[in-house]
Amino acid sequence: MTAVPVPHRVVARRPETADTVTLHLEPVGAALPDFAPGQFAMVHSFGRGEIPVSVSSVQATGGLAHTIRSVGAVSDGLCAMRVGDVVGLRGPYGNTWELERAYGCDVLVVAGGIGLAPLRPLILSALAEPAAYRRVSVLVGARTPGDVIGRQEIDGWPTAFTGVTVDQPGADWRRDVGVVTQLLGRAPFEPDGTWAFVCGPEPMIRATARELAERGVPRDRIRVSLERNMRCATGHCGHCQLGPLLLCQVGPVANWAQAEPLLSVREL
């Protein structure tokens, strides 16, 4: 059966930054299968088109949240949605962060910009099971203090270490300034007993993953979320290829061992 979008109603809308909005969605009728952290939906804006968006919240009730940055016609349309409006969702698509593999290990979450959104459900899952993981650290980098997604809730997370750093601080910023990798020295983790989860702009992913590997985190335990153009999400359109990977099928999350050689080839 060709996947047709399933109507979902916007039940809450939270502006995150000047250009980013989180939409909380509930199914109008039948719900989609459960999403796992790391997976994405194809979100349809009526008359505009579809884009892939990772889930930034998964609720047991079938409700979902998507954090969307306005960068094109479809995302503009979605960001302009009001409570009560309807969007279409297909999914869940793609693989997951596979947090469960980090059982008994330190969990290091490194997010750049809107990259925090897909990591949010992973952070909440890890913190919900304090006995399952050793130390959970969350490192967030953003352009300005106003560009930190969900900044109201970050400091409430009971992590072993939470660091937020920005490129351009305002006058009132009393926290860190600089690239997100500089926070790595302050997070408590035993490199060879650590799983790292990284999402953000590709150069930030490369810099972070390289530094983690240099510090001794095994490359196959550095999980990064990758992004390419995506049309169908079902493995048939060919757009999301990154070398041998069809990202909608074997991604968007990949191990650094697998991703590093691919990301080092220009225009692959």
Partner: peptide, 13 residues
């Protein structure tokens, strides 16, 4: 290098 990375404004559009 870190300053250069910030100059690029990676998180911008």
């Amino acid at each position: 290098n870190a300053a250069r990375a910030r100059l690029v404004d990676l998180y911008g559009i």
